[in-house]
Design a protein around this nucleic acid. Sequence first.
RNA 1: GCCGAUGUGGCUCAACGGUAGAGCACGGCUUUCGUAAAGCCGGGGUUGUGGGUUCAAUUCCCACCAUCGGCUCCA
Length: 642
Amino acid sequence: MAKVKLPDGSTLEVDNSLTGKQLAEQIGPGLAKSAIAAKINGQLKDLSAPIFLDGLEEAEIQIITPKDREGLELMRHSCAHIMAEAICSIWPGTRLVYGPTVYDGFYYDIDLDEPIRPTDFEKIEQKMAEIVKADTPFVRKEMSREEALNKLKDDKYKTDNINRADSDSISFYSHSDCFEDLCRGPHVPSTGKIVAFKVMSVAGAYWHGDATQKMLQRVYGTAWANKKDLEEYLNRIEEAKKRDHRVLGKQLDLFSFNEAGPGFAFMHAKGMVIWNAIIDFWRSVHNKYGYEEIRTPIILNESLWHKSGHWDHYKENMYFTTIDEVEYAVKPMNCPGGCLVYNTRKHSYREFPKRVAELGLVHRHEASGVMHGLFRVRQFTQDDAHIFCTPEQIEPEIISVIELVFEIYKAFGFKDFHIELSTKPENHIGSDEIWEIATNALKAALIHKGIDFKINEGDGAFYGPKIDFHIEDCLKRSWQLGTIQLDFSMPERFGLVYTDKDNTEKAPVMIHRAILGSFERFIGILIEHYAANFPLWLAPEQVRVLPISEKTNDYAKTIESKLKDANLRFSCDLSDEKINSKIVKAYNDKVPYMLVIGPREAESGTVNVRIRGLKENQTIEIDKFLEMINSKIADKIIDLAF
RNA sequence: GCCGAUGUGGCUCAACGGUAGAGCACGGCUUUCGUAAAGCCGGGGUUGUGGGUUCAAUUCCCACCAUCGGCUCCA
């Protein structure tokens, strides 16, 4: 006899030849029915596998069902196999490469010359349904690495997978006579356990993500514990589409793109209101934190970019032009210009830390296939700054930047973020020694501030290591915004110096930093985060006046002049539509407050306020309303209710 | 840049080898209305661009451009 310990802390005396499946049956028929795998001493195993191996007599065990995150993933992995069989049976020439799970689903990379099209998905799903209906068991077979290599010697993809496998024992899974796949497992007991799935999309993907390798076809699918979860997932995708900043940007007249300039955004009047609101706030905070602001040219002589190292390390992403037979480059970064400004006069250690901000318009030639609304453009405005300081000032300066970052993110309603530290890339300038000093300085600041961070080896900028700030939006998607980069190379290349206490000239340390990253991208993120229901202080139109009929148009005029005096952004709907129609229009425009006014309000000097997102409306004196709304704007309150 | 898909009035979409239709938006008229879309009338498209096949192309084919979904890259 042996002992198992269950997740609730209880223990059971059981036979030591017991499998997970049998254990589930002993615990209860309901569990046995929904069980898809067993977690034995922390390791996921097939339900058919024996619990006690190597003479062990005790095990901690958890029966996994599709309700567990791990169970769901396992199900998706099994579903990937089922989809692979379906594809192989429809296109017999298919060669399978790799089929892992991803967040919300799975994919299978295949090598097949004939392109699979979205119109084929139904056919694949039908075939999958047949396989599921047959409810055949997943069967595991193990063999040595050598045997496996021999078995698959003609299959370069699977041979490669075997060579990459950790274990010397290689396993295969089959769930029917005509399908077998190399796989570590585990899998659900039988194909019938997969109840809710869908083939989602197909796209190209390089083998091993390497652009020099063959382009494979990646077929994406999803699977859920039940039909309802699948429906909810599909609805969620629909909802996310409605938040798409490209859709909302067009709908709300915020910005546009045109074939005349792919990757170059046109900001419309309403988009610029948001833009300027952000800048006003940004300036005031930077002022508080002791920054000065400069502005440097967009086009500068090519020789400058040779000097900075951009020519050697960033040329592919730069635009060039010729003026009077002299070669120029369009700036992809602001730092060289900033260095030229620094060098226009002598500097003393007494000025340090010298914090110089620049809302710099940069151009980067992005590959045509990567452009994506405002998230990925070829021209964008960085909220850049360069801090010149002494080596001793590095740490307090970095800490001060981190505090500034947090203050700004909080104002926009972003509370969840994480930090990553990126180290020396292959393509870099400066000695290893300098890189180490710089990297350690960043690390020390994070550690002293007690901030958790993740390390990205080899992801730094070519001139220095960096700390990146990633925020999470309301849909739990992560976006990189801010960055702090430590640079010892640029000051040297540009011969930057300051006079130290001992009257000698030394090279300053240069800290590059951006907080919102790119205004364009940041506005895109705000649109999606708020579904364009902007906080009052950012909303392009804060208030709309809706007279019931033209009888109250005169009263509307007096309300309008009060709104104007209060410095609010508003409009008045004087159309001869009915009030219902006016409400719908204002609703679609996502205006925070609608002021409905009729004879009743005109008589009492009040307005009837409809608050965005709330069903009820309330009548309030216009002066009280103005007072309330102005205090919300001043304090950047996100909640509109009062 | 690579793979695949898509491209029809301002927007969303329909249709078709015989030169295009709806809703919304827009303009005019009627209506003046109390909390999520009043009615009528009207204007607007050489169907992304350039070639080719055909008696005939918006529809079929090719190239290019742009967009979308991914890959690689990235603020």
